[in-house]
Computed example of a mutant assay.
Amino acid sequence: MTIANDRLSDPTVRALVAAINAGDRTAFLALLTPDATMSDDGTERDLLGWVDREIFSSNGHLDVQSESADGRALVADYRNDTWGEMRTAWRFTVTGDHITHFATGQA
């Protein structure tokens, strides 16, 4: 069963999921530290190139199925126009109210 976005525990992660689902690149980037990093399936990626390709130019959308680690680890059905839908895991490192790193990959 999908967890409604407003029920996600961590406010920063909640805002990031909302930005993804709204297609709001500006809001998404505002939640990241200037030196934020990310990895996909264990490989470090160019953050801006990845989010533009995998989220914002391909209509990415997250339906969160479960959360753990105080809301900083999610399992979600992720879909975009490039890859279709897949079960994914997301882990976020949050400092203050900004994300310094996130990791995603198939769950």
Score class of each variant (00 low, 15 high):
Met1Ile: 06
Thr2Lys: 10
Thr2Ile: 13
Thr2Glu: 10
Thr2Met: 04
Thr2Val: 15
Ile3Lys: 02
Ile3Asp: 02
Asn5Phe: 00
Asn5Ile: 11
Asp6Glu: 10
Arg7Tyr: 00
Leu8Gly: 12
Leu8Ala: 05
Leu8Asn: 09
Ser9Asp: 05
Asp10Pro: 09
Pro11Leu: 07
Pro11Arg: 11
Thr12Ala: 13
Thr12Tyr: 00
Arg14Phe: 01
Arg14Gln: 10
Ala15Val: 03
Ala15Pro: 08
Ala15Ile: 04
Leu16Tyr: 01
Val17Ala: 12
Ala19Arg: 03
Ile20Cys: 08
Ile20Leu: 06
Ile20Ala: 08
Asn21Ala: 05
Ala22Gly: 14
Gly23Lys: 07
Asp24Gly: 10
Arg25Leu: 01
Ala27Ser: 14
Phe28Trp: 00
Phe28Leu: 07
Phe28Ile: 07
Leu29Lys: 08
Leu29Met: 09
Leu29Gly: 01
Leu31Glu: 02
Leu32Asn: 05
Leu32His: 02
Leu32Ile: 05
Thr33Glu: 06
Ala36Glu: 03
Ala36Asn: 07
Ala36Tyr: 04
Thr37Val: 09
Thr37Asp: 02
Thr37Cys: 08
Thr37Ser: 15
Ser39Met: 03
Ser39Gly: 13
Ser39Leu: 01
Asp41Glu: 12
Asp41Tyr: 00
Thr43Met: 09
Glu44Ala: 15
Arg45Ala: 14
Asp46Asn: 14
Asp46Phe: 02
Leu47Ile: 08
Leu47Ala: 06
Leu47Thr: 06
Gly49Gln: 08
Trp50Gln: 03
Val51Leu: 05
Val51Tyr: 00
Arg53Thr: 15
Arg53Met: 10
Arg53Gln: 10
Glu54Val: 15
Glu54Gly: 07
Glu54Lys: 10
Ile55Glu: 03
Phe56Lys: 06
Phe56His: 04
Ser57Asp: 12
Ser57Gly: 03
Ser58Thr: 15
Gly60Lys: 07
Gly60Ser: 10
Gly60Gln: 08
His61Ser: 12
His61Phe: 04
His61Pro: 04
His61Ala: 13
Leu62Val: 10
Val64Thr: 14
Val64Arg: 10
Val64Gln: 14
Gln65Ile: 15
Ser66Tyr: 01
Glu67Leu: 03
Glu67Trp: 01
Ser68Pro: 02
Ser68Asp: 12
Ala69Phe: 04
Ala73Val: 13
Leu74Val: 09
Leu74Gly: 08
Asp77Lys: 11
Arg79Ile: 14
Asn80Asp: 09
Asn80Trp: 05
Asp81Met: 07
Asp81Asn: 12
Asp81Gln: 09
Thr82Glu: 11
Thr82Asp: 11
Gly84Arg: 01
Gly84Thr: 09
Glu85Phe: 04
Met86Thr: 13
Arg87Glu: 06
Arg87Ala: 15
Arg87Val: 14
Thr88Pro: 03
Ala89Trp: 00
Ala89Met: 11
Ala89Thr: 09
Ala89Lys: 07
Ala89Leu: 14
Ala89His: 06
Arg91Val: 08
Arg91Tyr: 04
Thr93Leu: 14
Thr93Gln: 15
Thr95Ala: 15
Thr95Ile: 15
Gly96Lys: 01
Asp97Ser: 15
Thr100Cys: 12
Thr100Leu: 06
His101Arg: 11
His101Met: 03
Phe102Thr: 07
Phe102Pro: 04
Ala103Met: 07
Ala103Asp: 13
Ala103Arg: 11
Gly105Met: 10
Gln106Asn: 11
Gln106Glu: 10
Gln106Val: 15
Gln106Pro: 02
